[in-house]
């Protein structure tokens, strides 16, 4: 994989251009059955940066995000066309093991979804299924510390993960995801069900995490996108010839450009809240 292969309309700033993209799509079409949910997305996700996906509801942000770690494989009607490369390797090539992909590309969901197990067992779950040989206690402490939850739970690691507050549960889910030490962390509206303080904690966390991980976050919160992300991709939906709605990538650039100086008018309208 080398950077020159990237499509020309990709991220413009020198910093992003120098980084090798971790994930890259070319003319990616995503279908549910015969329904084309997302069409012709070509973009790249830069290394060790936060990429935000924004756009109106139903434009396919979650759908695209879930392609990145092949979580859509659980949906029978799901199908992709085009290329989705991870370090130059097509993720949907027949010989690629989806389980292996998900170990490298982790996911945090909109609704906190801890397992009905203890806090400790939640964090070590990924390590256990991956046959991790190291010290589990140390892994728990490290992951919970990274997720800014350690101080709050260190005395009750054996109690249920479900007994935590919503914001704590979400940080537990983040700890659980980073305990597997993935390269990429996908977050689908991770703060949607959280209060402002928990949201702030998770945003701070993202700043910390991007030192080590590449992050892709879906958000409906414009302030959040401008606060946490380095790169922003704006998606929209339009009617196709057959009268179905399908999502597409409008533009993709450094976050400051998207918010202050977008190329497309619809982006300008969306980020300024004048979207109709």
């Amino acid at each position: 994989m080398n950077p020159q292969d990237r499509p020309s309309h990709s991220v413009g700033s020198p910093k992003a251009a120098s980084a090798t993209p971790v994930l890259e799509t070319r003319n990616l079409n995503i279908y549910y059955g015969s329904f084309l949910a997302v069409r012709e997305v070509s973009m790249s996700i830069p290394n060790n940066q936060v990429t935000a996906f924004i756009g109106p509801s139903g434009c396919g942000k979650s759908t695209l995000l879930r392609c990145f770690n092949r979580l859509n494989d659980l949906i029978e009607t799901f199908r992709v066309e085009g290329d989705l490369n991870y370090h130059g390797q097509n993720l949907y090539a027949p010989k690629v093991d989806a389980v292996d992909v998900r170990r490298r590309i982790g996911m945090v969901f909109q609704k906190p979804n801890p397992f009905p197990k203890s806090i400790y067992e939640n964090v070590v779950y990924g390590a256990r299924v991956n046959g991790y040989k190291g010290d589990l206690d140390e892994l728990v402490e490290r992951s919970l510390t990274q997720a800014a939850l350690w101080d709050e739970v260190k005395d009750k690691l054996k109690t249920s993960g479900l007994a935590l507050s919503g914001g704590q549960q979400q940080r537990l889910c983040i700890a659980r995801t980073i305990a597997v030490q993935p390269e990429v962390v996908l977050m689908d509206e991770p703060c949607a069900s959280l209060d402002p303080i928990s949201t702030l904690k998770i945003e701070e966390l993202m700043h910390e995490l991007k030192q080590q991980y590449t992050i892709v976050i879906v958000t409906h919160n414009m302030q959040q996108a401008s606060r946490v992300s380095d790169v922003t991709a704006f998606f929209n939906v339009r009617l196709t010839d057959t009268g179905k709605r399908s999502g597409y990538l409008v533009e993709h650039d450094r976050t400051e450009n998207i918010f202050q100086n977008p190329k497309e008018e619809s982006t300008q309208e969306y980020v300024s809240g004048r979207f109709g």
């Binding site: 292996d100 998900r102 170990r103 609704k111 979804n113 299924v129 597997v180």
Partner: peptide, 18 residues
Amino acid sequence: LPPELRQASIGLGATRWE
């Protein structure tokens, strides 16, 4: 069971049987 449980587990790299 909520489908989120299955997604969480699969998303952490567990196989279907795990």
